[in-house]
Design a protein around this nucleic acid. Structure first.
Lengths: 335, 335
DNA sequence: TTGAAAGCGCTAACAT
DNA sequence: ATGTTAGCGCTTTCAA
């Protein structure tokens, strides 16, 4: 059995009380330099580590933060997680990641699991399927610090970080227009997500600016965020089967973008359409059909979200003022 | 402050002792059906959850397993993690993921952190930089269950899972040969990794079989696993600058494969070489230059590793017999 | 400066 | 069938 050393062991070995050892270890000043040295040296020698579980129980906090994302096998989220970790580690927090796979059920289970697992706070990007937010409202009301990133929730008052989705979508759409496209379809994420409406607005605004009519039939939503391939293929098929085919597609997310390209390849329509979309893929310039990409500052978003959460956690007083940070995207043409 | 309900609260509310409540909750049979009902109903009503921290402290185990990988932003590992989670959740374990970014230091810190954070066991794929294994040896000696997957370590006696790297590499190389290539370079991972030598053997065996001389100058190692771009670019540059240029490259890993393609694109040499390599990318057939890919059963590997670890954790007696599972790869041509 | 003791939330002998 | 108590490893009053 794996049995770490405890302060009791040290106390016994050194003929001291556990309280003295504890104090020496955390550098309390009410302890003689000499005793402190002895304890510290011994602890060092046997590579003693305090039991964080015991500490958590005592202090009623775990120095860990929970992260809930739809999936980790997604460049945007894995980059965001890297950002989260970079801050968390530097501030002494551990990061516990959990995936929803865009399922509402998993989101409920995971958030509650994390909360009761005593994370000190939650960083969450909503699952595509989630329409009922009561699990989060409840935790929030109970006082669990929560920060939303990317797919945020308006109705809960807390810090939030997201990209300038409107502008990112606007840029991408305008690029398609300026490339000569006239009938631009929009492959969108689940309708109720914050990012979906923001990106759709950007798309529509670009059309408007260039006097192109907005046609609802050119917009398709993927209610499962593209987590099943079929959903994306059907949407693409729908576009391809239209009497008046689109000449371009603006795609709303990472997952959807690659799904869309794959579908086009499958249907052998790689030449007919210009594609632009959100993607944080690190191979975006290697893709064929090519994808002009709106890239979000995912790492930065993770950092910012983690900073916000930790400030919430460590705040001495209840926080009343909340911030919604909006980070700028970049756009990269590829052809 | 976030303050969950405790069994004490329930006991008080119901005028029972904490032990009765505890027993009712865990369904002990030495409790009257009626009391049990009352407690269960009440707990349900207030959505009571046992404090897992307290439980961990008491039982000296946490029902969580630690996963150490180089990075999560890598299709192979994120798929493996999905596999790990699928088993872990079904058996009531939580998964704590941590990344080394292929740094030795991070591996040491993370493994120790996890161990002392009281994970019940460790699932690890070594970092590319790791050459000193004493941190793992120590934990293993202390009795912490460890299972290696993918990048395994021979010198520690425990369960292991890996792909048939030899055969995967053999197939890829043979494909290149059968496509008419005569001078096949090998872009390899860090030399000391288990997967590196296995894949190199496969590569060499294929050459031998087809009577092609093995030339050491055609093999380049990336000691940091390609975690810095430069390293990969330099290796590719080296191949391109040879007097007798290779006509194909067999690439040893996911990260290296995309890095290699990106470098070829950068140097504008996308047409000159045939590329085959290990990759679990889900967009592999969309890549240009094209990549014929050896795909590992990552999800399956994750499942298997998790099963092995949990069996180790839950074994009543010290386990003496260890298994090394070898999973078959698949190969997909792309052109 | 140090030690004894209580308590964080829970479980499991050991009473009753 | 239920309650009392001790203890998991640690910190922190309170006393000495």
């Amino acid at each position: 059995m794996f049995k770490p050393v405890t302060i009791k062991d040290i106390a016994k070995a050194l003929n001291l009380s556990t309280s003295t050892v504890s104090r020496a270890l955390r550098g309390g000043y009410e302890i003689s330099e000499e005793t402190k040295r002895i304890v510290l040296d011994y602890a060092e020698k046997i590579n003693f580590q305090r039991n964080p579980i015991a500490l958590s129980l005592k202090e009623r906090r775990s120095y860990s933060i929970g992260v809930v994302v739809c999936e980790v096998a997604n460049q945007f989220f894995s980059q965001a997680i890297d950002g989260i970790e970079s801050i968390a580690y530097s501030k002494g927090y551990h990061v516990i990641i959990s995936q929803t796979h865009d399922k509402y059920n998993r989101e409920v289970i995971n958030t509650e699991h994390l909360a009761h697992r005593s994370v000190d706070g939650l960083l969450i990007s909503l699952s595509a399927e989630t329409k009922d937010y009561s699990h989060l409202v409840k935790l929030h009301q109970q006082g669990l610090p929560i920060v939303f990133f990317d797919r945020i929730l308006d109705s809960i008052q807390t810090h939030k970080v997201t990209s300038n989705n409107f502008k990112g979508a606007f840029n991408a759409t305008e690029y398609l227009i300026e490339s000569g496209c006239k009938r631009i379809a929009h492959l969108a994420n689940a309708a109720q997500l914050s990012i979906t409406s923001e990106r759709q607005s950007g798309y529509e605004e670009a059309l408007k600016k260039h006097n192109i009519e907005i046609k609802p039939e050119l917009i398709r939503y993927c209610q499962h965020g593209g987590s099943n391939v079929q959903e994306v293929e059907e949407a693409v098929r729908y576009f391809l089967d239209m009497d008046e085919k689109p000449d371009a597609i603006f795609v709303a997310s990472d997952r959807l973008s690659t799904g869309c390209l794959a579908a086009l390849k499958k249907y052998n329509k790689t030449e007919d359409l210009l594609i632009a979309g959100f993607s944080n893929s690190d191979v975006v310039e290697l893709l064929k059909p090519s994808l002009s990409a709106v890239r979000q500052p995912a790492f930065e978003m993770g950092r910012k979200a983690a900073e916000m959460l930790i400030s919430l956690i460590e705040s001495k007083y209840p926080v009343e003022e909340f911030e919604t940070a909006i980070l700028e995207t970049t756009f990269k043409k590829n052809d």
